[in-house]
Amino acid sequence: MKNLLLATALIAVSGAAFAQDVVRLGTEGAYPPFNFINDAGEVAGFEREVGDELCKRASLTCEWVTNEWDSIIPNLQSGNYDVIIAGMSITDERDEVIDFSQNYFPPASSAYVAMAADADLKGVVAAQVSTIQAGYVAESGATVLEFATPDESVAAVRNGEAVAVFADKDFLVPIVAESNGELMFVGEEVQLGGGVGLGLRESDTELKDKFNAAIQSMKDDGSLNALIEKHFGAEAAKF
C-alpha cells in the first residue's frame, strides 16, 4: 500500500501518461557548425540535421537536450539523456567509460589559431576543457589554458590571455575567415581521434546497433556527405 501511494505520487510528479519511448539526444549547443543554439533558441547545425535524419531512419522519436560540455559524459551515465551528439571525437580514454557508434564525421584535423604568424606554440595555448585538443596541448609541452566553452577559448586569444587556441579545424575555419585578418592559422595541422561518433551508455547495445545501421545507410546513399558539404564547405573531409 505504501509503495502504491509512493508510486502514485511519483507518477503524478513525473506528470505524463505512458506512451512510446523517447530517445533523448544530448548536445552542447555551443560548437558551430557542429551544434549551436540558433537565434530562435533551438538546437541547430550539422548534428541537428544528422541526428534528426538518423532518428527518422531508425524509427525513433528523438528529443534534443543541451548540457554543459564538461559534465556531458557523467550526465549520460546517470541517465539524463541517452545519446551524446556533440562533436565528440572517438578516443580510447572515452571508450573506456562510454561506447561509441561508428563515426558520422571523418577523422579531422586540429589546428592552432593565433593573432600573429610567429606565435610561440610552446607558450600559453587555450583549448576547451576535457577535449582531445586540451590533452594534446598539455603533452606538447605548452601551458594549456582551459575554458568551459569553445567560444571562450577563442576569445582568450583575442584578449591576449593566450598566444594561440588549439581546436578542431572545422570549428575554427569560419572564425578565422570572418576575423578580417585578425586571426590566422599557424603551425602544423594535427590529426587527432578517430572521427566523431555518437556516445552511448555501454549497456545500451540495442540502441547502438540501431544508430550504427542508420549511420551506415546515410553513408551508403551519400546523404551524410551532402550534409557535411552543406555545413563545412566543399573542402571538408568526406567519407
Binding site: S14, G15, A16, A19, D21, Q77, R201
Partner: peptide, 24 residues
Amino acid sequence: LEFRVCPEAKIPLGKSSAFWHQAY
C-alpha cells in the same frame, strides 16, 4: 559508472515534454 533504472522509473519520464524536465 552507470546509474540504471527501468524507463518507467525515470523522473520525469523520458517521453515527458521538455517543460516537465525543466520544471523538475
